[in-house]
Design a protein around this nucleic acid. Sequence first.
DNA 1: ATATAAAATTAGTCTTAACTAATTTTATAA
DNA 2: TTATAAAATTAGTTAAGACTAATTTTATAT
Lengths: 217, 217
Amino acid sequence: MYTLSEENYLKSIYRLSQQSNFKITPTAIAESLKNNPASVVDMIRKLTDKQLIEYDKKKGVKLTPVGLKDAVLIVRRHRLWEVFLLEKLGYHWDEIHDIAEELEHISDATLADRLDKFLGFPEYDPHGDPIPKANGKVPKPYSVTLADLKIGTNCRVAAVKDTSSSFLQYLQKLDIGIGTNIKLLEKITYDNSLVISINDKENTTVSQKFGENILVD
Amino acid sequence: MYTLSEENYLKSIYRLSQQSNFKITPTAIAESLKNNPASVVDMIRKLTDKQLIEYDKKKGVKLTPVGLKDAVLIVRRHRLWEVFLLEKLGYHWDEIHDIAEELEHISDATLADRLDKFLGFPEYDPHGDPIPKANGKVPKPYSVTLADLKIGTNCRVAAVKDTSSSFLQYLQKLDIGIGTNIKLLEKITYDNSLVISINDKENTTVSQKFGENILVD
DNA sequence: ATATAAAATTAGTCTTAACTAATTTTATAA
DNA sequence: TTATAAAATTAGTTAAGACTAATTTTATAT
């Protein structure tokens, strides 16, 4: 149906549209795919011809209903495979993204739905991101970060915003994963550092940036 | 490591070398990949440069030790994914080949071994073909066909030689799968047709060609 | 042994999706 | 408002891997 490149562009445009309300420019897409902007301009033309996106210099790139539907299905496949890799094959949090990046392009019509069933219809992937349903509906993403909480609040780690391996490895070191219990004990006024207690253990201090990348429940 | 095309050529050459002792010619490879012989000549040059194969006009194409090792690993991945698709996702016999054809190219270093473990280290795939071990050793393939048996012999279906979907669908219709019990009752002298009893049920007559494509245990 | 058919090879083309370099358009700041 | 910087675009190139058409080599049959 789609080439590998086309799918990667659709997914990238979808992700950019979810991440913020900024207009989606060729440069932004180029950065997210680590491509040259000139290449992006070519692909914008191709995807526009195929009626998967619309491009207006003023408004930037937008997915059409068809493009959106298919982008969502690619993301669905990606996130389902992440669950599989972690839960069934025993990979760690920071290893699964790149493999899912390949698996998401397997094109069989019923594969995603069968995998979904096999995994027990999970709602969120191991990074806490919502897994779109077969009908295209997307469960509500988490939005409150650790840094948003009031002093003294207890919470459960639900997701992470940053999925870089340096961040994920840091989390591993701190023994923080999805479901970990965290209590916010103090905010340092000077630089907004956060003093937290992880699973009721000894106190740890983390940066504001860190706190803003942890989504909680 | 390898491109998709390179992997497909390696696998195709390996399969041809297993299927018979005929010399492996550009034309044979072209047929097996449904490619043009001219394209095959190009790729033979490329794989020769990379020291994955050797090509001698007299002797045909041969895998080098390195080429063989990697071809076997690709086949290993293919067959493991076939087991997964059938056993875990509930696909039918005739649906899994094409999907495994895509999955086999996923390149993570530990994926095959983890999948192998997850599946319980199966020795044969759903078509009865041996699944190469992580060290490259290949379990002994089945070699006796239904047509080789003496009248009155009981056997168990272990594998199929023909994996075309028309054959697999015919098997499905006859209710024959891996493990099915078959008793050879009679050989029709006229055209070598075989009269068999499937799982001790009513008698069925099948062609010689059919019998030669069923491997038994 | 030689004509003919089949197989292998070469030469050149095409498509996809990247790239660089040059140019044009748009945005920003003095 | 105009100079400058940034972004977008165009034009042309490249690499992989397929193709066709033409040619050469090898095999087969009379």
